[in-house]
Each structure stands twice: as C-alpha cells, then as structure tokens.
C-alpha cells in the first residue's frame, strides 16, 4: 500500500496507526546525539567483530576488506566498541563543532 512518510492530516493516518514500512526508524538519524565518535586504526584491527556484535545500534558493519566501520548517521557515541576492542584498534574522539 502507498503510505505517506509523515501524515499531515487525519485522513493520512493509517488505520490503527499501523506501520507498513519495516525498519523505517532508520529514517531518523540518531548520529546527531553523539558527543564522541569512534575512530578505527585498521593497523591494530584483528577483524574479530567484537565491535560489531556489541553495538546497541547495529550500525557497525564489515566492509569489503573485512574491517569494521560505524555508520555515523546512527552511531550515538556510546563508546562500547572502543572499550571492548581488546587490541585497542578503536579510540573515541570528541566531535568537533
């Protein structure tokens, strides 16, 4: 069914406020919440994927080379990845305004 992203009028509200666009929360970018950002040093990375599995946002993915990177649209800067990375391949740095 066609569904307007942001209903303006009551006629545009889906019956029962049902949502037929699974995963559409990704239209909202939580990256703006971030005070610190993770930076990967791939020289130290052992490609274990600990950062990927522990990310509460699910915003860390493996790239074609087997290294990991966070999608900054969503990364809230919690710092779990850097804290849990035991080879210390990730550091958290302040966001610059």
């Amino acid at each position: 069914m066609t569904e307007k992203k942001w209903p303006e009028t009551w006629q545009e509200v889906n019956p029962g406020c049902m949502v037929f666009r699974p995963g559409s929360a990704s239209e909202y970018h939580t990256g703006s919440w971030r005070a610190k950002r993770p930076i990967w040093d791939n020289a130290k990375c052992i490609k274990c994927g600990v950062c990927y599995i522990y990310c509460p946002e699910g915003c860390i993915t493996e790239n074609a080379d087997g290294f990991f990177e966070a999608n900054m649209d969503y990364c809230k800067g919690c710092g779990i990845c850097a804290y849990e990375c035991w080879p210390k391949a990730i550091v958290m740095v302040n966001e610059e305004d």
Binding site: A25, E57, N71, C78
Partner: peptide, 12 residues
C-alpha cells in the same frame, strides 16, 4: 532491529 531506534547511548 534497525538503527535509528531512540534507545539511550550504550543501552544494553
């Protein structure tokens, strides 16, 4: 469970 959810930072 897609990114863009509004949980607090570091939400277990």
């Amino acid at each position: 469970f897609s990114p863009g959810h509004r949980a607090c930072q570091g939400c277990g």
